[in-house]
């Protein structure tokens, strides 16, 4: 299953990549492949912008505009003027619907 094409904001700086393979290890959608000992983004449309790769890249070679892919959270963010948030339980932030 793939979502909208060419919308994911994941980017790689190949010159910074040290080829450790952590991005491929943590990616839940097998977005990365390895060419010549360096990571490459081979499945951009499968990226859900979770940020796991960015967080676990020791070389700082990756970037993404991470966030929740949830319409309710984004609409909430638009209405309150804040960041998209999945705190949609009535108990004021204690729960989460996602």
């Amino acid at each position: 299953m793939k979502y909208l094409a060419n919308t994911a904001t994941l980017r790689i700086s190949p010159e910074k990549c040290v080829g450790c393979g952590m991005c491929a290890e943590v990616c839940p959608h097998a977005v990365f492949s390895f060419e010549g000992g360096k990571a490459a983004i081979s499945g951009l449309d499968a990226c859900m912008e979770c940020g796991a790769c960015v967080n676990n890249c020791p070389a700082g070679a990756l970037s993404v505009n991470r966030g929740v892919g949830c319409a309710a959270a984004i609409i909430n963010g638009m209405l309150t003027g804040g960041e998209p948030s999945c705190d949609c339980s009535p108990k004021g932030g204690k729960g989460s619907c996602c």
Binding site: Y3, L4, M48, G67, G69, C70, A71, A72, I74
Partner: peptide
């Protein structure tokens, strides 16, 4: 149906924003 984006395992924020 659009609300279900919050429950899936593959929708990203940029895509949902674009739809909205």
């Amino acid at each position: 149906a659009l609300q279900f984006t919050g429950s899936t395992t593959f929708t990203g924020m940029s895509g949902v924003k674009k739809e909205l």
